[in-house]
Each structure stands twice: as structure tokens, then as C-alpha cells.
Amino acid sequence: MTGCIVLYKNNEKVLKESIDSFLSSTKVERLYLIDNSPTDLLRSISIDSRVEYIHNPSNPGFGAAHNIAINAALKSGGDYHVVLNPDVYFEGEIIYELMNYMESSPVVGNVMPKVLYPDNSIQYLCKLLPTPYDWIGRRFNPFKKMVEKRNKTFELRFSNYNKEMEVPYLSGCFMFLRLSAIEKVGGFDEGIFMYGEETDLCRRLIDGGYKTIFYPKVLIYHHFEKGSHKSWRLTKIGVKSAIYYFNKWGWFFDKRRKEINRDTLTKLGM
């Protein structure tokens, strides 16, 4: 079992909490810290022998940095790899529980637990495959009631997030990946600098014959800063990523997206 956190000028206290959460599991053999920061000030953030720190100041992006660790994990011959955000924390025992779940469900390529804010309120991180409105229009729509109505379906809020679900778009804050599946479909698309790379990967896993599952029997906490909503620079990065994604998969005419989303809603009884 390996994992990776991509760093960029992180708050050390929050980052340390995430690192310690993952390392608290005895199942963990290696944690890669891929640091895209201009300097290596975070090099000594952990002295655990299982941590491998790699400074990558060229900052190729979130997915590209994670691919460095994924490629190393594939060479190590492990079965599972966890993609972690630097602002998540949890009890180490969930790693064991998710590993058991994957062992009993060989068709699952990616599983995400229930994700809560630190105040215990739920984060709606299960989504349908996005349309251009979902990723671009919804962000700038001033009519809140229209946005809320779409969120009920797009973010699967009607499901109440209280049962196991097949979900085509799971958050990248915590991805428990089957390495044999990643070997088959490939890692993150490095054409996406940041935002949406997990959507692309989930979609390729589905097309590769794997399931992407929301598993609410275990939970994690996520500070979830929503950086793209607070920074114009990050908003531009998000829009650029969306354009890349839709150029790749299709904008308004995407037959496969319709099929996957329809099947998802049908299975959930909507």
C-alpha cells in the first residue's frame, strides 16, 4: 500500500495532520511527498522512514506530480495506491477497511469514503459526469435557486449520501486506487494542470470496465478551501482545464456521458 500527497506552499500544521493520518495505518509501506513548491522548506515535514520526499519546483501540475508517485508505486509491485489532498485527515483504520473492501470487490478501480467538513457537515463530492454548464456556467450563474436545483441532481444530493453508490465522478481529495486498473487505463492526464483530472481518470476507469464507488461506511475530514472560488488565477486554471476536458470528451454532444449519467440515475432510482 502506497500513497501520495502533492505539496505547494502548504500550511504545515494542516499538512502534518494529513501525513500522520495516513502513516498511522500499519498497512502503509510508502508515502510519497511530491513538492511542487519553489523551495524545499517542507522537506523535513516528516521523519518517518516510510516517507519519500521529492522536490519538483518546475510545478508541472497536480496530476503530473501524482503520476511521479503512481509510476513509482507501479514499479514497486503493490496492489493499491491512495491519492491524498494535503488538507484531509482521518483515522488510520479506514485504510484497512477500504483495503478489505477492495479485496472483496475486484471490479472496483476507485473508491471514495464519505467526506465531511471539520464541523461534521457533509461535502457533496459525488457527481455525474459534467456538462459545460456544470463546470463553467454553474460557476457564474447568479440565480441561486437554479444552481441549487441542478446541484440536487448533478451532485446526487437526492441520494442523501447514506448508501454505497456507483458514481462516475468522485473527488480527487481521496482516491483509493487499484494499481492494476491504473496500469491498464493510465494515470492522470497531464494535459490538465489542475481541476478535473480526477473526472477524466474516473471516466477512463469506467470505460476500462471498472467501477468507481462511493463507500459511506468509513469517513474522512476535508478542510476544502475551494481555492478556485477565491482566486481569479485559480478560476482561470479551472476554466482552462474544463476547456481541455471538453475538447477531449465532447462539449454538448457526448453520447457516452449521457449513457453513463442515465445509468447512474437509474440505479439510484431517479
Rank of each mutant, 00 (worst) to 15 (best):
E17M: 15
T264S: 03
E190Q: 06
E198P: 00
P132N: 11
R43I: 02
Y80E: 14
I70L: 15
G208P: 02
F90T: 01
L98E: 08
N247A: 12
Y117D: 11
D134I: 00
K127N: 10
E93M: 03
G187K: 06
V108P: 00
V218G: 02
Y133S: 07
S58M: 11
V167M: 10
S171D: 11
P106S: 13
N100E: 14
C173N: 10
C4G: 06
Y195C: 00
P86Y: 06
K9M: 03
M175I: 01
P132S: 07
A73L: 12
R150D: 05
R157M: 12
K226L: 15
V51A: 03
I54S: 06
R139G: 02
N162D: 15
R178Q: 13
M165Y: 14
P106K: 11
L205F: 09
G172S: 11
W249E: 09
S231K: 12
E190Y: 02
A242Q: 12
F174Y: 14
F176N: 09
G196D: 03
E197A: 03
M270K: 15
F158G: 04
A65F: 01
L42C: 07
N151G: 01
I5G: 00
N247Q: 15
I95C: 05
G92Y: 08
A72N: 14
T264A: 05
F176R: 04
V239E: 14
R50N: 07
P118K: 14
E164H: 09
L177T: 02
V28C: 06
E103T: 01
G3N: 07
F188N: 03
C173I: 12
I68G: 05
Y124Q: 10
K258Y: 09
R43H: 12
D200C: 00
S37A: 06
Y161N: 13
E190S: 05
A181K: 02
A73E: 14
E103Q: 04
T2F: 11
I213A: 09
I45Q: 03
H66D: 07
D119P: 02
Y195I: 03
F154M: 07
E17A: 13
T199E: 06
I136Q: 12
G109Y: 02
K258R: 12
D254I: 01
P106V: 07
M175L: 03
G92L: 07
P130R: 04
N100T: 01
G209Y: 14
R257G: 05
P216H: 13
L41V: 02
F62E: 14
Y80T: 09
F143H: 08
E225G: 10
V51I: 08
L41N: 10
F188K: 06
E259R: 05
N85V: 03
R203A: 04
N162P: 03
K248F: 12
P118F: 15
R204Y: 07
E225N: 14
T153P: 00
I54H: 09
V88D: 10
K27R: 15
K258P: 00
R256N: 09
K267M: 08
N247C: 13
T26W: 08
L201V: 04
Y161I: 07
G109T: 00
F158Q: 08
G208H: 08
F90P: 00
H222D: 08
L31R: 05
E190M: 01
F188M: 05
Y215V: 03
K114P: 00
I136S: 11
I68A: 03
R30I: 06
S231E: 14
G196V: 01
Y245P: 01
V115F: 06
Y96M: 05
N110L: 08
P216D: 10
T212I: 12
P57V: 00
N10S: 10
